[in-house]
Simulated assay, not measured.
Amino acid sequence: MYKKGNAMDNKALTKVLSVVSFVSFMLLGCSSNPLPTATLHPSDTKEITSYKYLIGAGDVVNIFVWRNPEVSGTFVVRPDGMITTSLVEDIPASGKTPTELARSIEGILATYLRDPVVTVTVNNFVGPFSEQIRVIGEATNPRFVNYKKNMTLLDVMIQVGGLTEFADGNDAVLVRIEDGNQVQYDVFIDDLIRNGDITANVDVLPGDIIVIPETWF
């Protein structure tokens, strides 16, 4: 019995060492092969006065071709940023303004139609990721918010339902891409929405990320 017990102990020890070796190998592999940092896709909007809506995946675009109803219609922008119309496949749409897309379609349709005149309107606004504001951390409903011209921090916080009871709003930061670099700005959300200090309200821009930490007791 004693010898059998030793044999079983040795087997168990071997299994444990094998598991430890495997875990160590996996951890070593993970630490030595980190994923590359996410690619930055900054918004083209640098000032609130220069904002123009850009079409993004998930948008529904209405394409009207004057005197050519057979090639007009409503189309959804695919996840790859393309649309497929009744006449032309794979038209790049994401990242363009409705006017830019209309001119692009006119150029494509000129191969098939004489002097096409195209108008593009957008429904179900989503826009590209670069144009969305993302709120993470201790917001009541952390999520992305579609930017609207002249939007402020207060407008964004209303969209996400304010702060949780555990939020440290005055230690929040706003992250913005400027000249290819991430720049952090302090924002004082507690002062703004809990104390009613309107001077704490600031303009936001497409692509901003608002990070709200949890308070430490």
Rank of each mutant, 00 (worst) to 15 (best):
K52G: 04
L154V: 15
K11R: 14
R103K: 09
M82Y: 14
T45Q: 09
N170R: 06
E214F: 05
I212C: 10
E70S: 13
E106N: 09
G73F: 02
F75S: 05
V187K: 07
P213V: 15
D80M: 08
I189W: 01
Y51P: 08
Q184E: 15
E131C: 07
T45M: 08
D9S: 10
N62Q: 12
V135W: 01
V16Q: 04
K52R: 12
T84P: 01
N146K: 07
W66D: 05
E131W: 00
K96D: 00
L101W: 01
D9M: 12
F25M: 10
S104W: 02
P142W: 03
R78E: 06
F129L: 07
R194A: 11
F217E: 02
T85R: 04
S72A: 08
G58Y: 01
T74K: 10
N123I: 06
A172F: 02
A93Q: 03
S50D: 11
L54A: 09
S43K: 03
R114G: 02
Y185Q: 04
V156F: 04
Q184R: 13
V88W: 00
G162A: 12
T97Q: 08
R114A: 14
E214G: 09
V211E: 10
D44F: 14
M82T: 12
G207E: 00
I108F: 02
E100C: 11
L17F: 14
G29E: 06
N68G: 05
D80V: 12
L40W: 04
L109D: 01
T99R: 09
T152E: 02
Q182D: 13
D191V: 14
N33Q: 11
D171L: 15
L101Q: 06
V183Q: 08
F166D: 06
V135R: 07
V61K: 05
V88M: 04
S130D: 11
L13Q: 08
N170P: 05
E106G: 12
I63Y: 00
L205Q: 05
S86N: 09
T84R: 07
T215D: 15
D203L: 13
D44I: 15
Q184N: 14
E70F: 10
A57P: 03
I136S: 07
V211T: 10
L174Q: 13
I91E: 03
T152L: 03
G5N: 10
P142F: 15
D190K: 07
K3W: 09
G29W: 11
T215F: 00
T37S: 10
Q182C: 04
P98S: 14
L28G: 15
E165L: 05
Y2N: 08
N181C: 05
S86R: 07
P34F: 15
N68W: 00
E131S: 11
T119K: 06
F129Y: 08
V204E: 00
P69Q: 14
V204D: 01
F64C: 03
G29V: 13
A12G: 03
F25W: 04
E138N: 12
S43F: 03
V76Y: 03
A200I: 06
D191F: 01
T85N: 04
S72C: 13
N68H: 11
Q184L: 12
F166Y: 14
V65E: 05
V19D: 05
D9G: 12
E214P: 04
F188I: 03
I91P: 02
K148L: 06
M8K: 06
G29D: 08
A12D: 05
T39N: 04
F75M: 07
P34Y: 15
V126Y: 00
V187A: 04
A57E: 10
S18C: 12
M1G: 11
A200S: 15
